[in-house]
Simulated scan of single mutants.
Amino acid sequence: MLYGIAAATAALLLAALFAALLRVPALRAGIVERRRQRPLPLLGGAAVVVVTCLVAWAGEWTRVAPLGEGVAQLLVAAACVAALGLVADVWRLRARVLVAGTAVAAACVVPYEETGVAAGILAVLWIVFVSLAFRALDHADGVAGTVGVLTAFGAGACAAAEVMDGLAVLLSVLAAALTGFLMHNWPPARIGLGACGSLFTGFLLANAAVFTRAGYAIGTSVGVLFPLTAVATADVLLVVLSRRVAGRSLLRSGPDHLAHRLRRLGLRAPGACVLLGILAFCSVSVGVLVDGGWTGEGAVLWVGGGVLVVVLGLFRVPAYGPRRRMPPPTSPQVRAQLRVRNG
């Protein structure tokens, strides 16, 4: 207990320090993305990854807080996914490379002995989905970090209920590191999570939830896993629905995520983060209650209904501007441009 508090405090302070120190090197190296007409450095995720791994391995090395069977391998796999995300931040890897790398890492750590092969394959697919969903959540300042902190607390509570102390400590360290990062990522953000931090966060949270539910029936596990990641799921569903209806490529970015549409409704960036945090807290709480047996599995239907209402409600908020129509080749504007080009 005392080590968990000390580890979380150290993770919070170190993540805040490292995120501040990595901001200028990221800007100088050009590891940035354009967000609201400003360059945002993307090495904040690296700070979260390094601090989480260092603090967790300190507990393992000193044997004060051993990670437990399978959790050490999970942390190694998450670090490999983070490294792949860092490469994507620097060199812009194709999406299919990220999907394949995350799937391989997930397949290496899923506990098939307890889940069975069929459920294990479903778990791999779900882990990849959640990892990419958290990657998509990093579309606006503060959103991925806020949802990640709340989800980590919920998954940590489930791990503690299953007497997986090492996993619970790891998740508390992750939550603290994300909180330290949020000191620099709260709107207006000075540094971003990037693919490195968002994939690491989603991968670690999804795998931790699978570990806590290994050995349980698939139906009861869905009643826990879905509420833990309901906000990230809603964001993905909204984006996919919007882009399919608009005839846009699913890989083409756009202002069509949850936070973007909340901004269009008049909320400021901090307000959108707070509202999404409240929604995440409510859904994660349902997952924890179902996991602990304090409420029935039917409670997940309320979460599913809430996700449906949010997606369909925000879908009606315009996300894309009117398409610019190109003038016909024989229009006076085109003829004038051609005369200018030809001298």
Score class of each variant (00 low, 15 high):
M1C: 04
A6D: 01
A10L: 11
A15Y: 03
A16Q: 10
F18C: 09
A19P: 06
A26C: 04
L27S: 05
A29L: 14
A29P: 00
G30N: 03
V32P: 01
R34G: 00
R35P: 00
Q37M: 10
R38V: 07
P39L: 08
L40F: 01
L40A: 08
L40C: 01
L42M: 14
G44N: 05
G45E: 06
A46F: 05
V48L: 08
V48F: 07
L54G: 00
V64R: 10
P66E: 07
E69F: 11
E69R: 15
L74Y: 08
L75C: 04
A78C: 13
A79E: 04
A83K: 00
A83T: 11
L84W: 01
L84Q: 03
G85Y: 06
G85T: 09
V90T: 10
V90S: 02
R92H: 13
A95V: 13
V97F: 11
L98P: 03
L98N: 06
V99W: 11
T102R: 05
Y112P: 03
T115R: 12
V117I: 14
A118P: 03
A123Y: 02
L125S: 12
S131W: 07
L132Y: 08
L132G: 09
L132H: 15
R135D: 08
L137M: 11
D138W: 08
H139S: 15
D141E: 10
A144Q: 10
T151K: 02
F153E: 01
A155I: 14
A168E: 07
V173M: 06
A176K: 03
A177N: 06
A177S: 15
T179V: 12
M183I: 14
R190V: 02
I191F: 03
G192L: 07
L193K: 10
G197W: 05
T201E: 05
G202C: 12
G202R: 11
T212S: 13
A217C: 02
I218P: 11
T220K: 05
V224Y: 04
L225R: 05
F226D: 04
A232T: 12
T233R: 11
T233H: 13
V236Y: 10
L238V: 12
V240F: 10
L241C: 09
R244A: 14
S249T: 10
L251S: 13
L267K: 09
A269E: 15
A269F: 04
P270I: 09
A272M: 06
V286Q: 03
V286T: 10
V288S: 02
D291F: 15
D291S: 12
G292H: 02
G292L: 09
G296Y: 02
L308K: 02
L308D: 00
V309S: 02
V311A: 11
F315Q: 13
Y320P: 09
P322L: 14
R323K: 15
R324V: 15
M326H: 12
Q333W: 10
R335L: 13
L338F: 02
G343T: 01
